[in-house]
Simulated scan of single mutants.
Amino acid sequence: MTTSALSLSVLDLIPVRTAQSSAQAIAASVALAQSADRLGYTRYWVAEHHNMQAVASTNPPVLIGILAARTERIRVGSGGVMLPNHSPLVIAEQFGLLEAAFPGRIDLGLGRAPGSDPMITALLRSSGAVSEVDAFPRNIDDIAALLQPGGAALSLTSGQEYALRATPAADAMPEIWLLGSSDYSARLAAKQGMPYVFANHFAGDGTTQALDLYRRGFTPSDTLAAPRTILTLNVVVADTAAEARALALPQMQQMARLRSGQPLGPLATLEEAAATTMAPAQQGMIERMSATWILDEPVAAAARIRDLAARFGVDEVMLQPIASAHGTAAPATSPARERTLELLAAELLEAAPAPVTGP
């Protein structure tokens, strides 16, 4: 155990393995969230992705309600809601209700990317959720205003004002975070005085520049007096570094296929990944990921996480536990992801229970 604790959180895409149903993948993530809650992690966020066989995290508000109802202490939120897909009023209503049901435990992370391909974006907008990317800053302001206990007023062409609230008798509002992986998001978060999450787990090259831009340009707001940051990391921790790399191989192969424009299927099991031969260019991508992701035994992994947090000066680290599982693993479980959280909690979190031993 270290002498000084580091705030740790979890990002979950709710991966779907071979021969695993959506129901089983969600059950595995519920168990993972409960472990994070018990171990002392700060927050548990779910992403928004669409039409991907390996990802069940399609609807953050629904999943947040499921996870918050099955946990006790941990904050639950979106990492993030992809705002161009949705009406600001609908998001404000959803998260206003979640905050009312689980007071003090809800986070609203907002992103500017669509989170899918143009066809899915068009289908989402055909339901009336038209929120252009260029309107992103204004839509953030609208959501924040609608979530305030006093609500907002809409100015009509007649000169009258139309009162509007996300929920009729709000006591409080969720924390709103801006997510990003670019200079644009860093500048916007700074300008609007919002807490900022940098997606280092897939855009690590720009981390230093984005966080520097955010801190230098930060303007205090009514909700935040000083910069506040989270850094995301891809992580697998096991008893040995070799085991951690083997557990991460299915996800690294999946990312290599994605980046080379290849079709994606469910997340492979460890046995399937070990038997797969990747193209040379894809293998090069895997080797680079293996060098930059945190894939190690507990002490070394904790040291790297602590060093990265200090290097970038972040307030919190959000881990994406990307381990797959053996083909023999129970379908409604994710044992290696739970093991990752347990081993890191024992190294980095104060008063965390000792990790569970065994397979």
Rank of each mutant, 00 (worst) to 15 (best):
D212C: 05
Q160F: 12
A189V: 09
L231E: 02
F136V: 13
T219K: 15
A170R: 05
L233Q: 02
P174N: 12
L164T: 05
A244L: 12
S221G: 03
Y184M: 14
L231V: 05
V197Y: 03
G206K: 04
L233F: 04
A172M: 09
A144M: 15
T232Y: 12
D171S: 15
D222E: 15
L211C: 09
H201T: 02
E243K: 04
V235W: 00
W177S: 00
L146M: 11
Y214M: 04
T167N: 07
A210Q: 04
M194S: 05
V235Y: 01
R245Y: 09
R165C: 05
G206A: 13
V237M: 15
I176P: 00
P220T: 10
L211F: 08
L147R: 00
G150V: 05
T157L: 15
L156K: 13
A199R: 06
A170F: 03
K191A: 14
G180C: 05
D142W: 00
K191M: 09
G150A: 13
P168T: 07
A210T: 02
E175D: 06
S158V: 03
L224W: 03
L211M: 11
D222I: 12
A241H: 11
G217E: 09
S158K: 07
D212R: 10
G159T: 07
D142L: 14
Q209C: 10
S158D: 14
N234G: 04
D142P: 00
L164V: 13
A210R: 03
N234R: 07
A186Y: 04
P174T: 02
Y214K: 08
V237W: 04
P149I: 15
D222Y: 08
L146G: 01
G204R: 14
A190D: 07
S158M: 01
V237S: 12
R215F: 12
L179I: 04
L224N: 03
A153W: 01
E243R: 11
E161Y: 06
F202W: 04
M194E: 05
F218L: 15
A186G: 06
N200T: 05
Y214P: 01
T167R: 02
L224R: 06
E243N: 06
L213M: 07
M194Y: 06
A199N: 06
G217F: 12
D212Q: 13
L213Y: 00
S182Q: 01
F198C: 08
A225E: 05
L178I: 06
L224Q: 03
G193H: 05
L154F: 08
A210D: 02
Q209M: 12
T208E: 14
T157Q: 15
Y214A: 00
R228C: 13
V197A: 14
L231G: 01
A225Y: 08
R215I: 10
N234A: 12
A145R: 02
A144Y: 01
A190E: 08
D141P: 01
E243F: 03
L156G: 04
R228L: 09
L231S: 03
D205I: 10
G204Q: 07
D205H: 12
D205R: 14
